[in-house]
Amino acid sequence: MANYALIDGYLESMRSSIRWRRDLDDVIAEIEDHLISATERIEARGANRLDAQRRTLDQFGDPKVLAVAFASTPTGGIAVPTTFTKTAGSFAIVSAVAWIVGLVAIATSAGLPDATGVDPDQFVLNGQTGFFMMATMSLLVAGALMLVAMLGLYRRHGSLGILGIGGLAITGLGVATLLIAWAFAIWMTLIGLGVLLFSISLLRRDVSPRLWTAVWGSGMAVGAISWYVLRWLEVGNRDQWGDYPLAVGIALPIGIVIMAIGLFGVGRWLYREQPVDLTPHEPLAAA
C-alpha cells in the first residue's frame, strides 16, 4: 500500500497493540478495508489523499484505546496479556534462577559428606547442613513460583483444556513432593510429566514462543528419562539406599538446567508483553 503511508503506519501500530489476538490477520484485514474505504470516500468529496487519511484515522480512534476495546471481545480464543501474566512472567524468571540455586545447593550438599567425613546416612536423614536446607528451600520456592508462572501462562492462553489442567495438577503434585528433596525420582517424574503435558497444551495454542516452550517442557522429562535409563544401565556404584548417585548426578543437572533455561525464556516473553487492561462488556445475551 505505497499510496497509503499513514494507514500503513497505523496498521502496524494496531498490529502491535493487538498482537495477542489469534485472529490478528483477520482483524487487521478488516480494519484495512475500513480505512481505505473511508479514505476513498473522503477523497471522492474532494480532499487529497493525505488529508483523507488523516481524517479517516482521526475518526477511527487511537490504537491503544482500541486495543482495550478489542481485549474485551472473547472472540476466537483470545489470549490477553494482563498485569497478572506479566507478574507471572517475572515469577518464571525468578523460578528459573531458584532452580539453578537449588541444583548448586544439592550438588554442594551431596559433596559435603565426602569432604567432611560426615556419615552420609545421618547427613541425609537429618538434613544437618545449611546447604541441604538451602537446596530444599530453593527447590520448593522454585517449584511454587513455577506453578504461579504456569497459572499466568494458563490465563495468557485463555484456556488450555484438559491437557493443560492435567499438566498443572501433576506439576503441583510434583512440587509438593519437593518437600522430600532427596526423592529425586518421584519429583523429577511428576514435574517432568506435568510440565511436558502443560507445554504440549501451550504449543497447541501457538501463542508462547515455541522454542522456549519446547525447551522448558522437555527439560525435566529428559532429566527423568535419563535417570531411568542410567539406573537401568546401572551406571556407577550402587549406594546403601540402592540408588546410583552417578545417575542422579548426571540426570538431575540435565533436567534442571534445560528446564530452567526454557522457563527463563518463556518468563522473559511473558514479562515483556504489554499488559492490556480489561473492560468486560457483555453482549445482549448476557444482559
Binding site: 475518526q59 480512534g61 478489542f70 471481545t73 472472540t75
Partner: peptide, 25 residues
C-alpha cells in the same frame, strides 16, 4: 471512535447474534 464498533461486532458474532463471511473486493 469508529474502531470501537468492530469489537462490538465480533462480540455479537461470538454470542451467535451475527454471522460473517469473507470476500475480496
Amino acid at each position: 471512535p469508529e474502531g470501537t464498533v468492530y469489537p462490538a461486532l465480533h462480540r455479537l458474532e461470538k454470542a451467535g447474534f451475527l454471522a460473517s463471511e469473507w470476500s475480496v473486493v
